[in-house]
């Protein structure tokens, strides 16, 4: 995840390998820490992933302010989701969302065929860690939810992994 802390635009050409994977390592440690802690407390793993999700929410809520700074005002909800799929995703994960589907009634499904946080845990189609892999998506779910919340879209985000390293994020907008 590249944070842009200077006032100048990020120079995308200057990146080092360590720069790219630092977030992945940190994220991995975060997940391990949270899962480990939840085991300590003998709670359900489910319950304590919410902490991870909340971290993501908090980061998303803050980072969207920065990422949309130079962006013209969004026309509508779909415009926002498109931004999320393209520029947002590129800023965070160096690639765009591969496929976006919507029912035009507030449900958006974002497909990433090679999600970078899942890329390191096995060859494509590997089933070794399939069961555990959703925990690697909790942070990103929160990130999405937080970003959208700050843009005025209250939603729930669910993630699904069917075949590594692809995954999909299910964004369901809550209409008030």
């Amino acid at each position: 995840m590249k944070h842009q802390f200077s006032d100048t635009k990020p120079n995308l050409n200057i990146k080092t390998e360590a720069d790219e994977c630092l977030f992945e390592y940190l994220h991995g440690e975060m997940v391990n820490y949270i899962v480990g802690k939840s085991l300590e407390d003998t709670n359900d793993i489910e319950e304590d992933l919410s902490r991870l999700e909340w971290m993501g929410f908090s980061v998303g809520y803050r980072i969207i302010e920065r990422l949309t700074r130079e962006w013209p005002r969004f026309k509508d909800e779909l415009d926002i989701i498109k931004f999320i799929c393209t520029d947002f995703w590129t800023s965070l994960y160096h690639k765009q969302i591969d496929n976006l589907r919507t029912n035009h009634h507030g449900v958006y499904v974002l497909h990433d065929n090679e999600f970078c946080l899942l890329a390191k845990i096995g060859k494509s189609g590997s089933k070794q860690y399939l069961r555990e892999s959703p925990r690697l998506l909790a942070f990103t779910c929160g990130l999405l939810r937080g970003s959208l919340a700050n843009l005025g879209i209250v939603c729930t985000v669910k993630a699904e992994v069917s075949a590594l390293p692809s995954c999909k994020f299910n964004v369901e907008v809550q209409r008030i």
Binding site: H3, F5, D7, Y61, R62, I63, E65, R66, R69, N150
Partner: peptide, 16 residues
Amino acid sequence: LHIAYANAVSDPFYIP
């Protein structure tokens, strides 16, 4: 102003 604000929001001690 917007840049300054975005930086202020990134401050981990600031609660949105």
